[in-house]
Design a protein around this nucleic acid. Structure first.
Lengths: 190, 190, 190, 190
DNA sequence: AATGAATGAGCCTTCATTCAT
DNA sequence: CATGAATGAAGGCTCATTCAT
């Protein structure tokens, strides 16, 4: 009976605040207390909108998937060729990291925080990354339509893995060299 | 506040137990309570050996660096050529993941759990990853001694980033395909 | 604050669900939340029918009085003599306990849950038990019309107290021996 | 590692306060918060002495068993004959009820508050009542040594059930008539 | 060197009730 | 008549750390 998935001002406020805190501090490091306090809400209100903290976490990741994909789309949609789009993904990463609040990938962070692979959050994370991998594969296939699918899938996966490594090492070192090295490599790969 | 870094049976016991729990459950998810309980130790004893939980975390990562490097060395030292050693690093990863307790990389997990890049743990993580990157660079340089250092450094970095991406996606999907795709790519790169 | 005591489909539904839950889980252990959830009702609807949880509790005990007395009547009305009716009350208890949902006497359970003897619920409980005691006294008087009222009243009270003790110890031990012992004693008493 | 069963000032304080509150307000109605507040203790201290609230409840009932039995012993030990001792048990009940804080039997109250018969508290309650029943049986056997055990056991059980009914109806009505009626009946039974 | 009692802020969740729609 | 969002105190419990012994 709680956890209506309709929108409502308070629900949106809670989700907004939680999204920021989960990203900045981590999912497990962020308490329900802090969320409702910063969202200027009562405990009961929180639980009338979300069944549990985990259900809020799920809503966060689902929304984050859409948001992040939106950012990515905005960055690459105007690029004319698949090859440029692929490089554009790395350029997007470079740009993104320059944000003052950059704390890496919300999905990878939550993955590392969440040991059990059965966890509902883990499924959401897998879905998001599966989707990203597919995007790389599709772009590779468009870039070299003459290649057999098995080969373009392989290249797509490799680009995906390289992207993931770059993502996390930029979080680690807080420097631009990983994305620069990766981009350069991608250029020579295509 | 003693916090002797000398060895002692109790200290070793605590560190052993903590290492297992930190890896399996995560650093923040593991409480001091559980550690001392499983190490059959008193609260006071814990704090006579370690200044704080963070100091124990530091000791854990320092020890983990040595342990993990040891595992890696054991896997690749008998391989005759630098190229085979590089591939051997990916084979090691493949083997490692087959462990029932595989929970990904302790350093990346802790990185994702720890927002502040000023954190002492974060420095330890950077050192460990720096070291791993250097290992790739050295092996590439040995593999192609005729190349200029800038190029072998670049290739080493790319291998490092690809390895990192593979590492984390194997944790994400709990499947072997990432390491297989990465290894195949490395073969054609060398 | 309406709190109409008229009947209405929703009100009946709420009372039905609450009656089951109050009996099975206890009055204080059962939350308004769970009641409206299982009755498929909104919070506001609940409070438009009942002034408070206590008022629902009162309605429950009032209805329970009628229901329980009905069960008892059904069990003993066909018995020809007062003596048999008295024994029939204990047989009814024996039969009742065999119900899979037996959780003792709703009134005694609520009595024990409710410290203050001024409580409105406590008055309802006293009325119910007063009524039961009176039933025993009346039957005894009918059984031995030649006895002075003071003596038949005394015997009725003793039967009542024995019944109450039996009731609660069958809840305690979940066994049949209390009612068997009590019935045997009653036989020799009459 | 918590829940040492040794005595300690703080532990005793907590148990004392809890015993009073559990009896006066009921086990489930009393919160850990209130207990530690009235015992002037910190949350953590509470949980270093008791594994859980239930474990405190168990300690309470175990102690209560000894205390209550002590009161009973004190009341009847000086009485010369088994018959007088049996009557003395009812006199003790009469006396006990005159306490200003009388809230009935802690064990029956907790029984009625606790639906699940598997509950650890329920076992403690059964043990206590078993013990009381045995006391009645033993006294009856001493009173009429010539009777077969099966008969004295039966009489003991009946006395026990009568006592229990009296106990709870004195709580219900807060009057002396139940114990007076019961005592009178016991006299004629012996 | 080792013990474990004590602290108090914080964890996630449920409580009975009110009120604007 | 009915809805369900909003409240805020309270529920049982864990946290990292201190300190007297």
């Amino acid at each position: 009976m709680p956890a209506s998935s309709r929108t409502s001002p308070k629900r949106d406020e809670i989700l907004d605040v939680a999204s920021r805190l989960f990203y900045e501090q981590g999912y497990h490091q962020t308490g329900v207390q802090q969320i409702i306090s910063e969202a200027d809400t009562a405990k009961g209100t929180f639980y009338s909108h979300f069944e549990s903290k985990e259900s809020l976490g799920l809503a966060w990741l689902k929304a984050r998937h859409l948001t992040w994909n939106g950012w990515l789309e905005d960055s690459i949609q105007t690029l004319p060729t698949p090859a440029e789009k692929i490089l554009g993904i790395f350029d997007f990463l470079s740009q993104w990291m320059k944000d003052c609040n950059y704390r890496g990938c919300a999905f990878l962070n939550t993955l590392c925080e969440t040991p059990s692979s059965d966890d509902a959050l883990r499924k959401e994370i897998r879905d998001h990354k599966q989707d990203l991998q597919k995007r790389f594969r599709t772009l590779v296939a468009e870039h070299k339509p003459e290649q057999p699918k098995s080969l373009s899938d392989h290249t797509g996966s490799v680009l995906f893995l390289l992207f993931e490594g770059t993502l996390i090492e930029m979080q680690n070192f807080r420097e631009q060299w990983p994305v620069e090295a990766a981009r350069k490599q991608v250029q020579s790969l295509l």
